[in-house]
């Protein structure tokens, strides 16, 4: 059974179709990178995975549980699916430690001390132990995004979703975030990553999904995608991105 399975997912905003019959799957331990020009629907697609964006047709199944089923306890499911956002979305009124422990306590029901310990351990892991008592607004973008990854990990997720995690960062901060992600991938985390960082894709991705105008145009093994993408759009996209 795949960890994430999407079957013919379609979504409309009013008359406008943003996703058209998107199907793909992510096996346990697999890393897939989703790329495509802006407006291609990739961010919407990844938000459909944990039901942050509702979709009108199709099915998303995470670890055997259907996301679109009205009977599904979405909060409970989302608690097991880590998500990292483009703009970090740390909670600005809480210290870093509180950011890391609040959901452990309120959602998973862990004790405050246990949650704090776990949070600090993960801060260590992303190299930010010394920032534990600061507030998000006092950290650089790269640091905030590393905290956001630690926050997602604090919930012991069964898989992780990344929605353009480096596109809001200054160039010199991109690598510190990618390093954490590469490490995570090498440890065997199941990951779905929307990104334009093709270096990351070459290094750790198993498969690459290319989207255009709401459709999944390519869904290939990494080697095949970078070797010779079949569609013209993907070729154009790649040549643009790689020659920058």
């Amino acid at each position: 059974m795949p960890m994430i399975e999407m079957k013919n997912v379609s979504k409309w905003y009013g008359e406008f179709q943003v996703l058209a019959e998107c199907s793909t799957q992510v096996e346990k331990g697999e890393v897939i990178v989703v790329c495509g020009p802006s407006g291609s629907g990739k961010s919407t697609l990844i938000k459909c995975v944990n039901g942050l964006e509702p979709f009108q047709q199709g099915e998303v199944i995470i670890n055997g549980i259907s996301v679109g089923d009205p009977k599904t306890d979405l909060p409970k499911l989302r608690a097991r699916v880590g998500m990292v956002f483009q703009h970090f979305e740390l909670f600005p009124h809480m210290s870093i430690t509180e950011n890391l422990s609040i959901a452990q306590v309120k959602v998973l029901g862990r004790g405050p001390d246990e949650a704090r310990e776990r949070g600090l351990k993960l801060l260590d892991r992303v190299g930010l132990r010394s920032q534990a008592d600061k507030f998000p607004g006092q950290l650089s973008g790269g640091q905030q995004q590393r905290v956001a990854i630690a926050r997602a990990l604090s919930m012991d997720p069964i898989c992780m979703l990344f929605d353009e995690p480096t596109s809001a960062l200054d160039p010199e901060m991109i690598n510190e975030v990618l390093d954490v992600m590469v490490e995570l991938a090498q440890e065997g985390m199941t990951m779905m990553v929307v990104t334009h960082e093709m270096g990351f894709a070459r290094k750790v991705a198993h498969r690459v999904v290319f989207m255009d105008q709401g459709r999944i145009v390519e869904d290939d093994k990494k080697e095949a995608f970078f070797g010779s993408p079949r569609s013209e759009r993907a070729q154009q996209f790649l040549s643009k991105i790689l020659h920058h």
Binding site: K47, N50, L52, L74, P75, K76, L77, R78, A79, R80, V81, M83, F85, E89, L90, F91, I102, A103, K106, V107, L108, R151, M155
Partner: peptide
């Protein structure tokens, strides 16, 4: 979204 994604 971040709140919901955390399972709140």
């Amino acid at each position: 979204m971040a709140g919901l994604a955390m399972g709140f």
